[in-house]
Structures are given as C-alpha cells and as structure tokens.
C-alpha cells in the first residue's frame, strides 16, 4: 500500500486524450479471439473479480442476506467455482453483510459520501464513511463531487478524496468518478489522476445510476492513468469498471484490455473488479456451456 503525502501540486499535467484514437484502440481489444482454455480461465477470473452489488432504496436485510449467500455459492451444482470478490451495499446494510460473509474471504464493500450524488457537506461524507468502516466495511466506494470538478475546482475534489482516505483507516478506498457526468475523456483522465494522487487505492468508473457507465473507452482512459502512475512511482492502483458490463464477452474484452495495458499482475481481484449485478449469471451460463456444450435456461440460475 502507498505511503504518499497527498499534495494537489504534485499531480503532473494530464495528457490530452483523443477520442477517435481511443475508439480505434478499444476496437482492437475487441477483435481478440478468446477460446477454449483461455475462455474458461478468463470466465472464472471474471467471477472472482465481481463485486456483487445491490444499491437500491428498497434493499432489505433479507435481500442482502440472499445476495451474500449467492456471493459464496455461485452455482453449487458446478464444483470448483470461485466466490465473487466482494458484496457491495449501502452503509446501513454493512453489518448484516459482514455477518453473512464472515470467514468466506468475500469482502464487504460499502458505498459512502452521500452516494450516488455526493451532494452533501464534507462532515456528512466523513461521518458516512466512518459509520461504514465501523460497521465492518473492508472497502469504501466513494463518489467525487462532480459539480465541483466541472466548475474547475479540482483542488476541492482532491482535498475531499484525501479526507475520505484518512477516514477510511485500513479500509481500501475506491473512488467513483461517475464518468457519465464528466462527459469527455480529457475530464476522465484528469479526474483519474486527481483521485490517484489524492490516495485512491482503486479508481472506479460509475455509480451505476447514470448512463453511459463503464464503456471500454472510459475504462481504457483510466487504465492508462494507472499505467502512467505505476511507471512514475512503482505503485499499483486498482481499477473497477461498474455499470453496463452485463455479458461475458464484454467482461473478457475488459480483461484483455487490462492484460495488454497493465499486465498479468493486475489480473486478480486485488487489483481489478467488476461492479455488476447481472454479470455473474451470464458468466455462469457460459461456463456451464463450455462443460455441457449447450446453453441452459436462465431459470437454472438464481436471481437475487
């Protein structure tokens, strides 16, 4: 983990990003042909990188418990499957989730900082974060103040992230940029650099509440920021695309991108996550197909 003293002035200028060039590069990742054992291995990695998520106003303890069970028992009929990486819930559900997944290796992640809008004063955001950590959250998914970012108050965004990082204590901090509201890839890149230099352990694309979310173009841009930071400092930062990745194919293309930009070292759930709710079942369906040769009805896979 990093031992840096955050200082806004230490952030190097962010390179410009050419959208057309990014689209072209991303299209190349999508022409990679992933077959046979690479496909099977890749799909299992995907399962193991999922942050199984429920973030709704209507969440109940019962629903969270069901999801936590699924996180540890993805499809018991098929032995040898990994668990997901974490469950991701609101702070009020952290204690429940923590109890359900204890000793399974599955982490509990909690959104905080007035998720999803982030429209609250810093004191509330810090309290929100501390509550989640004290309830047992291993990881905190915070949102940045997009309004402040868009009006050019980048140092405000930086200071806020640094403050939340401090409130996290030992919990790992994922910083959600909400790229759908930042609009341009230049903004995505700048926000990534700010988050990384302010102390993010992970940078994350979206809340899942705003479209577009984790497009490959956006994830690519953020991965390049991680790459540059690693080359500069030797410190690894994690990446979490969230929202909109619901098929195995898209998930595998994301892995291809991580592998080719950051290398195999990032291909573990310590450094790469998918924030998704419906992806797991599609991956399970594909894995079973590699075994049986046929697709099974979606009724055979539990919906939580």
């Amino acid at each position: 983990m990093s031992n840096k003293t955050p200082n806004f002035l230490t952030i190097p200028p962010s390179p410009t990003v050419d959208k057309v060039g990014v689209e072209e590069r991303v299209a190349r990742f999508q022409t990679r042909s992933i077959k046979n054992q690479s496909k099977e291995q890749g799909l299992k990695m995907v399962l193991n990188m999922i942050d199984l998520t429920t973030l709704e106003g209507k969440d109940t303890p019962g629903k969270v418990k069901q999801m936590c069970y699924k996180a540890q028992h993805l499809h018991d009929e098929f032995p040898g499957l990994p668990t997901v990486a974490a469950v991701c819930v609101y702070p009020s559900m952290v204690a429940i989730a923590k109890k359900e997944v204890q000793n399974s290796g599955v982490k509990v992640a909690s959104v905080s900082t007035a998720f999803p809008s982030g429209q609250a004063p810093l004191s509330v955001k810090i309290a929100d974060t501390k509550f989640a950590v004290e309830s047992g959250a291993d990881e905190i998914d915070m949102v940045i103040s997009r309004g402040k970012f868009l009006t050019g108050e980048h140092n405000f965004v930086f200071d806020e992230i640094a403050a939340i990082k401090e409130a996290c204590g030992v919990a790992r901090l994922k910083v959600i940029l909400e790229t759908g509201e930042l609009v341009t890839l230049d903004n995505v890149r700048r926000a990534s650099d700010i988050a990384i230099y302010a102390g993010a352990d992970f940078i994350k694309t979206s809340t899942g509440k705003i479209q577009p979310a984790a497009t490959m173009q956006v994830t690519y841009t953020m991965l390049m920021a991680i790459r540059d930071y690693f080359d500069e400092t030797g410190i690894m930062i994690g990446m979490k695309p969230a929202g909109g990745i619901s098929t195995s194919k898209l998930a595998l293309h994301n892995l291809v991108m991580v592998k080719e930009i950051l290398g195999d070292a990032w291909l573990t759930n310590e450094w790469f996550r998918f924030g998704a709710s419906s992806l797991a079942n599609d991956v399970l369906m594909q894995i079973l197909k590699t075994k049986t040769g046929v697709y099974q009805s979606s009724d055979y896979f539990s919906i939580d």
């Binding site: 195999d264 291909l267 573990t268």
Partner: peptide
C-alpha cells in the same frame, strides 16, 4: 500479487 497467474490466449 504473490502467486501471479498468467492468462494466455489460446491459439485461434
């Protein structure tokens, strides 16, 4: 990562 796995593309 300690026990780093590698992920290779199968021939296509």
């Amino acid at each position: 990562a300690k026990d780093q796995t590698t992920w290779e593309y199968a021939p296509a």
